[in-house]
């Protein structure tokens, strides 16, 4: 069974930097899933951390819906789409295992009130559904089956009607999340993993400090979403943290590690480390006599 991680980096160069960060973070933790990037940024050295690069030439306003095109663009049996502005801290096997046989999965909660791309209660009434699947589109799992293809077609249909449905963003881009959320509600196909499964979290509603350190493989924080909770996600979706220095510091570190790997051979020991060993060896000889 061929599994892939699929991401998109289109438009500004910063998205390439983000996607490289995602790829490098996966490489750093030893995740072996085949990594695929869909991009129009062709001057980037993607080979550093991606196994396959697919050129992008579509309509930018439809970019969010490109997440669901991996079955057409690749020969993968299982696809895990991850937003490029994400960092991965634990290997992805549990996500693929949880999704196997379920067709289409996202992580979130059913909501029937509140505001999410418009008044949720009103949308539910108008569309004749009890609730909408609220989730973050930064992570989507899907499999190669006829049912999934039909479901994706349904999502695309809703996407084409998004304006009429009242699903709009501040920019001209057509939002995928409410279309998928409505398609899940209307078809009852697919799985909405509960939010506390913690496959992905964007630290929305952060309380206190965001503990984020790729060098220590650490990502943990308290946040107030559906409830106050401590979270250690597999995937940290930077989302709004793309405007915080801490995220870019992680990207710098990952880049530095990537360069380190290119410049240093297997088992390289720095002169400083060698010097420390030399001193410690003498101390041990003097202080800890046999």
């Amino acid at each position: 069974m061929k599994r892939i991680v699929f991401t998109i980096a289109v438009g500004k160069r910063k998205f390439a930097e983000c996607a490289l960060g995602l790829g490098r973070s996966l490489k750093l933790i030893g995740d072996t899933t085949h990594r695929v990037v869909l991009t129009d940024l062709t001057d980037i050295d993607w080979a550093d951390c991606f196994d396959q690069v697919i050129p992008y030439t579509g309509d930018i306003n439809w970019i969010f819906f490109e997440k669901l095109t991996a079955l057409d663009l690749t020969d993968a049996d299982q696809v895990l789409f991850i937003d490029s502005d994400s960092l991965v801290f634990k290997r992805l096997d549990p996500i693929f295992e949880a999704g196997t046989g379920k067709g289409f999965c996202v992580q979130g909660e059913w909501i029937s009130t509140g505001d999410w791309y418009g008044d949720v209660a009103e949308t539910c009434r108008a569309q004749g559904v009890e609730a909408l699947a609220q989730f973050n589109g930064g992570m989507i799992f899907y499999e190669r089956t006829d049912e999934v293809r039909a479901f994706i077609e349904k999502v695309n249909e809703l996407g084409r009607e998004a304006k009429a449905l009242g699903f709009q963003r501040d920019d001209p881009l057509v939002p995928d999340e409410p279309c998928i959320g409505l398609a899940l509600a209307q078809t009852r196909f697919g799985t909405l993993w509960p939010d506390n499964i913690d496959f992905q979290n964007s630290a929305t509603g952060l309380i206190g400090k965001l503990q984020l350190d790729v060098m220590k493989n650490r990502c943990g924080f308290l946040c107030r979403r559906y409830g106050v909770r401590y979270v250690e996600p597999i995937i940290f979706h930077a989302s709004r943290y793309i405007n915080f220095l801490i995220y870019w510091k992680q990207l710098d570190r990952l880049k530095w590690l990537s360069e380190y790997e290119k410049k240093h051979g297997f088992g390289y020991m720095s002169p400083g480390h060698k010097f420390k060993r030399s001193i410690h060896k003498r101390l041990i000889k003097w202080l800890i006599r046999p």
Binding site: G114, T204, G205, L206, I207, L222, R224, R225, Y226, G227, V228, F244
Partner: peptide, 20 residues
Amino acid sequence: LEQYERTHPFGWMSPGHKLR
């Protein structure tokens, strides 16, 4: 933390955090 949950909605961001 339980009190915080009661007094703050989903995804609340403090003014200090916004400023940062």
